[in-house]
Design a protein around this nucleic acid. Structure first.
Ligand SMILES: [Mn+2]
Ligand SMILES: [Mn+2]
Ligand SMILES: [Zn+2]
Ligand SMILES: [Zn+2]
Lengths: 132, 132
DNA sequence: TTTCTAATTTGTAATCGTTACAATTTTATT
DNA sequence: AATAAAATTGTAACGATTACAAATTAGAAA
Protein backbone atom coordinates (compact mmCIF):
# COMPACT_ATOMS: atom_id res chain seq x y z
CA UNK A 1 0.00 0.00 0.00
CA UNK A 2 2.73 2.44 0.97
CA UNK A 3 4.69 0.80 -1.82
CA UNK A 4 2.00 1.72 -4.30
CA UNK A 5 1.96 5.35 -3.17
CA UNK A 6 5.71 5.53 -3.51
CA UNK A 7 5.66 3.83 -6.89
CA UNK A 8 3.06 6.24 -8.23
CA UNK A 9 5.00 9.26 -6.94
CA UNK A 10 8.23 7.99 -8.47
CA UNK A 11 6.43 7.84 -11.79
CA UNK A 12 4.94 11.30 -11.65
CA UNK A 13 1.45 10.32 -10.54
CA UNK A 14 -0.02 12.04 -7.52
CA UNK A 15 -1.36 9.22 -5.39
CA UNK A 16 -4.98 10.13 -4.81
CA UNK A 17 -7.26 7.66 -3.08
CA UNK A 18 -8.89 6.55 -6.35
CA UNK A 19 -5.58 6.23 -8.18
CA UNK A 20 -4.11 4.12 -5.40
CA UNK A 21 -7.15 1.86 -5.36
CA UNK A 22 -7.15 1.39 -9.12
CA UNK A 23 -3.45 0.63 -9.27
CA UNK A 24 -3.75 -1.65 -6.28
CA UNK A 25 -6.53 -3.53 -8.04
CA UNK A 26 -4.33 -4.12 -11.05
CA UNK A 27 -1.42 -5.30 -8.92
CA UNK A 28 -3.41 -7.61 -6.67
CA UNK A 29 -5.64 -9.11 -9.33
CA UNK A 30 -3.38 -9.84 -12.25
CA UNK A 31 -6.44 -10.51 -14.35
CA UNK A 32 -5.95 -8.00 -17.18
CA UNK A 33 -9.33 -6.37 -16.52
CA UNK A 34 -11.39 -4.13 -18.73
CA UNK A 35 -12.45 -0.67 -17.54
CA UNK A 36 -15.90 -2.03 -16.81
CA UNK A 37 -14.49 -4.78 -14.58
CA UNK A 38 -12.31 -2.40 -12.59
CA UNK A 39 -15.24 -0.06 -12.13
CA UNK A 40 -17.69 -2.77 -11.07
CA UNK A 41 -15.26 -4.20 -8.54
CA UNK A 42 -14.15 -0.92 -7.01
CA UNK A 43 -17.50 0.83 -6.90
CA UNK A 44 -18.43 -1.65 -4.18
CA UNK A 45 -15.63 -0.27 -2.01
CA UNK A 46 -15.89 3.32 -3.24
CA UNK A 47 -19.60 3.99 -3.81
CA UNK A 48 -18.96 7.48 -5.19
CA UNK A 49 -16.54 6.20 -7.82
CA UNK A 50 -17.19 7.46 -11.32
CA UNK A 51 -16.43 5.50 -14.45
CA UNK A 52 -14.90 8.65 -15.88
CA UNK A 53 -12.33 8.55 -13.10
CA UNK A 54 -11.39 5.02 -14.08
CA UNK A 55 -10.93 6.16 -17.67
CA UNK A 56 -8.99 9.27 -16.66
CA UNK A 57 -6.78 7.32 -14.32
CA UNK A 58 -5.92 4.59 -16.79
CA UNK A 59 -5.15 7.20 -19.42
CA UNK A 60 -2.80 8.88 -16.95
CA UNK A 61 -1.19 5.55 -16.06
CA UNK A 62 -0.66 4.85 -19.77
CA UNK A 63 0.93 8.26 -20.32
CA UNK A 64 3.26 7.71 -17.40
CA UNK A 65 4.07 4.26 -18.69
CA UNK A 66 3.04 2.33 -15.59
CA UNK A 67 0.35 0.25 -17.28
CA UNK A 68 0.11 -1.27 -20.73
CA UNK A 69 -3.00 -1.96 -22.81
CA UNK A 70 -3.65 -5.54 -23.82
CA UNK A 71 -5.14 -5.58 -27.33
CA UNK A 72 -5.85 -9.22 -27.97
CA UNK A 73 -9.50 -9.05 -28.92
CA UNK A 74 -11.39 -6.65 -31.14
CA UNK A 75 -13.41 -4.04 -29.24
CA UNK A 76 -11.88 -5.02 -25.91
CA UNK A 77 -9.11 -3.12 -24.15
CA UNK A 78 -7.61 -4.69 -21.07
CA UNK A 79 -4.99 -3.24 -18.75
CA UNK A 80 -1.88 -4.69 -17.18
CA UNK A 81 0.30 -3.13 -14.48
CA UNK A 82 3.05 -5.59 -15.36
CA UNK A 83 4.94 -3.56 -17.94
CA UNK A 84 7.72 -6.05 -18.49
CA UNK A 85 7.72 -7.66 -21.92
CA UNK A 86 5.74 -10.86 -21.62
CA UNK A 87 3.34 -12.80 -23.81
CA UNK A 88 -0.41 -13.14 -23.34
CA UNK A 89 -2.68 -16.06 -24.13
CA UNK A 90 -6.44 -15.66 -24.23
CA UNK A 91 -8.58 -18.78 -23.96
CA UNK A 92 -11.50 -18.71 -26.37
CA UNK A 93 -13.46 -21.02 -24.08
CA UNK A 94 -13.17 -19.45 -20.62
CA UNK A 95 -11.93 -16.03 -21.66
CA UNK A 96 -9.07 -15.96 -19.20
CA UNK A 97 -5.88 -14.15 -20.16
CA UNK A 98 -2.67 -15.87 -19.09
CA UNK A 99 0.86 -14.49 -18.78
CA UNK A 100 3.89 -16.20 -20.25
CA UNK A 101 7.51 -15.28 -19.77
CA UNK A 102 9.28 -14.94 -23.06
CA UNK A 103 12.84 -14.33 -24.12
CA UNK A 104 12.53 -12.17 -27.21
CA UNK A 105 16.24 -12.29 -27.94
CA UNK A 106 15.69 -15.83 -29.23
CA UNK A 107 13.71 -14.35 -32.07
CA UNK A 108 15.76 -13.33 -35.08
CA UNK A 109 13.67 -11.15 -37.37
CA UNK A 110 15.32 -10.23 -40.63
CA UNK A 111 15.35 -6.50 -41.28
CA UNK A 112 14.07 -5.48 -37.89
CA UNK A 113 17.56 -4.56 -36.68
CA UNK A 114 17.32 -1.44 -38.82
CA UNK A 115 14.21 -0.32 -36.94
CA UNK A 116 14.17 1.17 -33.46
CA UNK A 117 11.88 -1.11 -31.47
CA UNK A 118 10.38 0.47 -28.36
CA UNK A 119 7.62 -2.00 -27.57
CA UNK A 120 7.02 -5.68 -28.26
CA UNK A 121 3.72 -7.46 -27.80
CA UNK A 122 3.05 -11.14 -28.23
CA UNK A 123 -0.47 -12.54 -28.19
CA UNK A 124 -1.74 -16.08 -28.50
CA UNK A 125 -5.28 -17.36 -28.78
CA UNK A 126 -6.60 -20.87 -28.39
CA UNK A 127 -7.73 -23.19 -25.63
CA UNK A 128 -6.10 -23.15 -22.23
CA UNK A 129 -4.80 -26.08 -20.21
CA UNK A 130 -7.87 -26.08 -17.94
CA UNK A 131 -10.39 -26.09 -20.80
CA UNK A 132 -8.68 -28.80 -22.85
CA UNK B 1 -8.90 -10.45 -60.67
CA UNK B 2 -10.19 -13.85 -61.78
CA UNK B 3 -7.86 -15.21 -59.12
CA UNK B 4 -9.62 -13.19 -56.47
CA UNK B 5 -13.04 -14.47 -57.55
CA UNK B 6 -11.78 -18.03 -57.42
CA UNK B 7 -10.14 -17.50 -54.06
CA UNK B 8 -13.30 -16.07 -52.55
CA UNK B 9 -15.39 -18.95 -53.91
CA UNK B 10 -12.96 -21.52 -52.57
CA UNK B 11 -13.39 -19.96 -49.14
CA UNK B 12 -17.17 -19.88 -49.17
CA UNK B 13 -17.61 -16.23 -50.10
CA UNK B 14 -19.86 -15.39 -53.04
CA UNK B 15 -17.81 -13.00 -55.12
CA UNK B 16 -20.03 -9.95 -55.47
CA UNK B 17 -18.67 -6.82 -57.11
CA UNK B 18 -18.16 -5.04 -53.78
CA UNK B 19 -16.55 -8.07 -52.13
CA UNK B 20 -14.12 -8.49 -54.99
CA UNK B 21 -13.19 -4.83 -54.91
CA UNK B 22 -12.65 -4.83 -51.16
CA UNK B 23 -10.54 -7.98 -51.22
CA UNK B 24 -8.62 -6.70 -54.23
CA UNK B 25 -7.90 -3.48 -52.34
CA UNK B 26 -6.42 -5.45 -49.45
CA UNK B 27 -4.31 -7.59 -51.77
CA UNK B 28 -2.99 -4.77 -53.94
CA UNK B 29 -2.35 -2.27 -51.18
CA UNK B 30 -0.75 -4.24 -48.41
CA UNK B 31 -1.22 -1.25 -46.14
CA UNK B 32 -3.27 -2.77 -43.32
CA UNK B 33 -6.06 -0.23 -43.78
CA UNK B 34 -8.83 0.73 -41.43
CA UNK B 35 -12.47 0.45 -42.49
CA UNK B 36 -12.54 4.18 -43.04
CA UNK B 37 -9.56 4.04 -45.40
CA UNK B 38 -10.99 1.20 -47.45
CA UNK B 39 -14.29 3.04 -47.72
CA UNK B 40 -12.75 6.39 -48.68
CA UNK B 41 -10.60 4.81 -51.36
CA UNK B 42 -13.25 2.60 -52.91
CA UNK B 43 -16.14 5.04 -52.80
CA UNK B 44 -14.30 6.97 -55.48
CA UNK B 45 -14.57 3.98 -57.79
CA UNK B 46 -17.94 2.79 -56.51
CA UNK B 47 -19.96 5.94 -55.71
CA UNK B 48 -22.90 3.94 -54.34
CA UNK B 49 -20.72 2.06 -51.86
CA UNK B 50 -22.01 2.02 -48.31
CA UNK B 51 -19.81 1.93 -45.26
CA UNK B 52 -22.11 -0.76 -43.90
CA UNK B 53 -21.11 -2.95 -46.82
CA UNK B 54 -17.46 -2.53 -45.92
CA UNK B 55 -18.22 -3.54 -42.35
CA UNK B 56 -20.40 -6.47 -43.42
CA UNK B 57 -17.83 -7.67 -45.92
CA UNK B 58 -14.90 -7.53 -43.52
CA UNK B 59 -16.95 -9.35 -40.91
CA UNK B 60 -17.69 -12.06 -43.48
CA UNK B 61 -14.02 -12.25 -44.49
CA UNK B 62 -13.06 -12.63 -40.83
CA UNK B 63 -15.60 -15.42 -40.32
CA UNK B 64 -14.30 -17.24 -43.38
CA UNK B 65 -10.76 -16.72 -42.17
CA UNK B 66 -9.46 -14.90 -45.24
CA UNK B 67 -8.49 -11.72 -43.42
CA UNK B 68 -7.07 -11.06 -39.98
CA UNK B 69 -7.52 -8.02 -37.76
CA UNK B 70 -4.41 -6.11 -36.77
CA UNK B 71 -4.80 -4.83 -33.20
CA UNK B 72 -1.66 -2.82 -32.63
CA UNK B 73 -3.16 0.47 -31.51
CA UNK B 74 -5.98 1.27 -29.15
CA UNK B 75 -9.25 2.19 -30.85
CA UNK B 76 -7.90 1.25 -34.28
CA UNK B 77 -8.71 -1.98 -36.10
CA UNK B 78 -6.79 -2.65 -39.29
CA UNK B 79 -7.24 -5.53 -41.72
CA UNK B 80 -4.77 -7.78 -43.48
CA UNK B 81 -5.48 -10.26 -46.28
CA UNK B 82 -2.16 -11.93 -45.56
CA UNK B 83 -3.26 -14.55 -43.05
CA UNK B 84 0.12 -16.22 -42.65
CA UNK B 85 1.72 -15.74 -39.25
CA UNK B 86 3.93 -12.70 -39.54
CA UNK B 87 4.93 -9.83 -37.28
CA UNK B 88 3.83 -6.21 -37.59
CA UNK B 89 5.71 -3.05 -36.77
CA UNK B 90 3.94 0.29 -36.47
CA UNK B 91 6.02 3.45 -36.72
CA UNK B 92 4.97 6.04 -34.19
CA UNK B 93 6.31 8.81 -36.44
CA UNK B 94 4.81 8.07 -39.87
CA UNK B 95 2.13 5.60 -38.78
CA UNK B 96 3.05 3.01 -41.38
CA UNK B 97 2.59 -0.67 -40.52
CA UNK B 98 5.35 -2.96 -41.79
CA UNK B 99 5.36 -6.73 -42.24
CA UNK B 100 8.14 -8.96 -40.94
CA UNK B 101 8.61 -12.65 -41.57
CA UNK B 102 9.09 -14.54 -38.35
CA UNK B 103 9.87 -18.09 -37.42
CA UNK B 104 7.87 -18.69 -34.28
CA UNK B 105 9.39 -22.13 -33.70
CA UNK B 106 12.52 -20.32 -32.49
CA UNK B 107 10.52 -19.12 -29.53
CA UNK B 108 10.48 -21.47 -26.57
CA UNK B 109 7.82 -20.44 -24.11
CA UNK B 110 7.72 -22.39 -20.91
CA UNK B 111 4.30 -23.84 -20.13
CA UNK B 112 2.72 -22.95 -23.45
CA UNK B 113 3.12 -26.50 -24.75
CA UNK B 114 0.22 -27.50 -22.52
CA UNK B 115 -2.05 -24.97 -24.22
CA UNK B 116 -3.59 -25.39 -27.66
CA UNK B 117 -2.43 -22.36 -29.62
CA UNK B 118 -4.57 -21.48 -32.62
CA UNK B 119 -3.35 -17.98 -33.39
CA UNK B 120 -0.13 -16.05 -32.77
CA UNK B 121 0.27 -12.32 -33.16
CA UNK B 122 3.46 -10.33 -32.78
CA UNK B 123 3.44 -6.55 -32.72
CA UNK B 124 6.26 -4.05 -32.45
CA UNK B 125 6.14 -0.31 -32.04
CA UNK B 126 8.88 2.24 -32.46
CA UNK B 127 10.52 4.25 -35.22
CA UNK B 128 10.94 2.83 -38.68
CA UNK B 129 14.04 2.78 -40.85
CA UNK B 130 12.81 5.69 -42.97
CA UNK B 131 12.00 7.94 -40.02
CA UNK B 132 15.22 7.28 -38.11
C1' DT C 1 -7.87 26.94 12.21
C1' DT C 2 -9.59 29.42 8.41
C1' DT C 3 -9.09 30.98 3.73
C1' DC C 4 -7.73 30.51 -0.75
C1' DT C 5 -6.21 28.07 -4.86
C1' DA C 6 -5.28 24.31 -7.71
C1' DA C 7 -6.01 19.56 -8.62
C1' DT C 8 -9.08 15.82 -8.76
C1' DT C 9 -13.38 13.69 -9.11
C1' DT C 10 -17.95 13.40 -10.59
C1' DG C 11 -22.19 13.30 -13.59
C1' DT C 12 -24.01 14.41 -17.86
C1' DA C 13 -23.86 15.26 -22.58
C1' DA C 14 -21.49 14.65 -26.87
C1' DT C 15 -18.81 11.92 -30.01
C1' DC C 16 -17.44 8.19 -32.81
C1' DG C 17 -16.94 3.57 -34.48
C1' DT C 18 -19.81 -0.22 -35.10
C1' DT C 19 -24.12 -2.86 -35.49
C1' DA C 20 -29.23 -3.62 -36.25
C1' DC C 21 -32.69 -3.40 -39.29
C1' DA C 22 -35.89 -2.55 -42.91
C1' DA C 23 -36.18 -1.00 -47.64
C1' DT C 24 -34.15 -1.24 -52.08
C1' DT C 25 -31.46 -3.26 -55.57
C1' DT C 26 -29.17 -6.99 -57.71
C1' DT C 27 -28.62 -11.74 -59.01
C1' DA C 28 -29.99 -16.19 -60.16
C1' DT C 29 -33.72 -19.39 -61.32
C1' DT C 30 -37.95 -20.77 -63.33
C1' DA D 1 -40.72 -11.82 -67.86
C1' DA D 2 -41.86 -13.33 -63.14
C1' DT D 3 -40.29 -14.89 -58.83
C1' DA D 4 -37.41 -15.69 -54.93
C1' DA D 5 -33.18 -15.25 -52.55
C1' DA D 6 -29.12 -12.74 -51.54
C1' DA D 7 -26.57 -8.59 -51.22
C1' DT D 8 -26.40 -3.74 -50.70
C1' DT D 9 -27.84 0.49 -48.94
C1' DG D 10 -29.29 4.28 -45.70
C1' DT D 11 -30.85 5.36 -41.35
C1' DA D 12 -31.37 4.64 -36.65
C1' DA D 13 -29.66 2.60 -32.49
C1' DC D 14 -26.02 1.19 -29.60
C1' DG D 15 -22.03 1.18 -26.57
C1' DA D 16 -17.50 2.50 -25.38
C1' DT D 17 -14.95 6.51 -24.80
C1' DT D 18 -14.24 11.49 -24.35
C1' DA D 19 -15.40 16.43 -23.42
C1' DC D 20 -16.82 19.49 -20.27
C1' DA D 21 -18.52 22.06 -16.44
C1' DA D 22 -19.83 21.72 -11.64
C1' DA D 23 -18.74 19.85 -7.20
C1' DT D 24 -15.47 18.05 -4.11
C1' DT D 25 -11.05 17.43 -2.12
C1' DA D 26 -6.29 18.42 -0.84
C1' DG D 27 -2.65 21.41 0.16
C1' DA D 28 -0.55 25.95 0.93
C1' DA D 29 -0.80 30.43 2.94
C1' DA D 30 -2.47 33.48 6.24
MN1 LIG E 1 0.17 -9.67 -18.39
MN1 LIG F 1 0.63 -7.87 -42.50
ZN1 LIG G 1 -9.91 -21.76 -20.78
ZN1 LIG H 1 8.16 5.89 -39.94
Amino acid sequence: MKNIEEYLKENGVKPSYQRIKIFEYLIKNKNHPKVETIFQELVQEIPTLSKTTVYNTLKLFLEKGIVQPILIEENEVRYDADITTHAHFKCEKCGEVYDFRVNLSQLKIEGLEEFQVKESHIYFKGICKKCL
